[in-house]
Write a protein that binds this DNA or RNA. Structure first.
Lengths: 206, 206
DNA sequence: TCTGTTGCTGGTAATATATACAGCCTCCGG
DNA sequence: CCGGAGGCTGTATATATTACCAGCAACAGA
């Protein structure tokens, strides 16, 4: 996100406060009144600038179609993002993968969780991680042997137990039906996306 | 707040989800489309009904002027109580058993969770419920075969899969090392304390 | 039987709102 | 000295949206 000017930050703050007070975003006219403009176009161009800098997103054609981005303060942004199917080649923690948000305090996990990953497959069954579970993930590449990690191999994102020995990394499933994956760091790219720090399961999976 | 009808609750839920998804409330037209109405007035009158019952408040004259009230999201609540060792003879859900509180929105589970029970033992291992896990429990005695329940037998509280056949109730572990418990309701007291609706695991158990 | 509520169809007028076009001024890097 | 971004005024206009009209049917309680 680009840095905002003082005036732009002022407008962003107004939008934020307006949402908290009213429950919905302001119109151009609301911004115009609040900031003392004489033309609604002043608000319009500010919104465009804010969108260009990635501070907000605008919904074309719909009234009050303003959404604050990268903001932890707004009520609408509370909770952890739930990430589902991860498309090949794109980072796990990307806006387009966020299916919904789960009202959980990230601080109940240690280290704190950054997002929830919807688990696919039964490869970690014997570690009590089942398909459909939400794995709480802390974004870090600093993992140790025996920890459960989220790893990216080629374009595949997987949850496994981590074991490293020199240039050899073994990604161990917790299910005899699956086979461990061995990666040679000198020849194959391996990205550690994060560390598993907890689990949440919905009732439907019980 | 008056009780909502099924249809009204449906609409309230839609508004709620719309706000989460979009960042702003829906218009009458949005509701009309989503619910499959042919007239926007259907949405209008539903909103009026919801306002009358105190479920929402409407801002006259402004677009998307819908605000959810009494949102049970529990922003003031300090999370779910975590219940640990249960002393013999006393009810599970008693103040003295609350070890701590966990910052989780009870509404992420369905039906909603009333408390979290710290799981002891590995009798439900193959259902992905491990020792130390926090089982989200909905307080009810209305359980069905195959569901995971919190049951009290004598002075013992246990988590098992429920199976009833007439007067015979079987409490099935999900681990071949444990043996099922059979209870004859005519001779032995069995109290169903609640229904397992979810699970939370701390990182330390991973 | 009357009255009110729920749950809609179908339509319309008023107005709230987004958004485009045409400018004006200042500051700043190249 | 040019070009672009920031920060506005002022005027329109298409359309998104609210809000109200008149009905219809089912149902519940008084």
């Amino acid at each position: 996100m680009h840095k905002l000017t003082a005036r732009q930050e002022e407008i962003r703050q107004f939008i934020r406060q307006f949402i908290i007070d009213s429950g919905f975003p302001p119109t151009r006219a609301d911004i115009t009144r609040a900031l003392g403009f004489r033309s609604p176009n002043a608000a319009e161009s500010h919104l465009r600038a804010l969108e260009k800098k990635g501070a907000i997103s605008l919904q074309a054609g719909s009234s009050r179609g303003i959404r604050l981005l990268n903001d932890t303060g707004g009520e609408a942004e509370s909770g952890l993002p739930v990430i589902g199917q991860v498309a090949a080649g794109s980072p796990v923690f990307a806006q387009e993968h966020v299916r919904e948000r789960c009202q959980v305090n990230p601080g109940i996990f240690r280290p704190r969780a950054d997002y929830l990953l919807s688990v696919q497959g039964m490869s970690m069954r014997d570690a009590g991680i089942l398909e459909g579970d939400l794995l709480a993930v802390h974004r870090t590449a600093d993992v140790r042997n025996g920890q459960i990690v989220v790893a990216r191999l080629q374009d595949d994102v997987t949850v496994k137990r981590f074991q490293r020995d020199g240039y050899q990394v073994r990604l161990l499933p917790e299910n005899p039906d699956y086979t461990p994956i061995t990666v040679d760091l000198r020849t194959e790219p391996l990205v550690i996306e994060g560390l598993g720090v907890g689990l949440i399961r919905n009732g439907e999976a019980l």
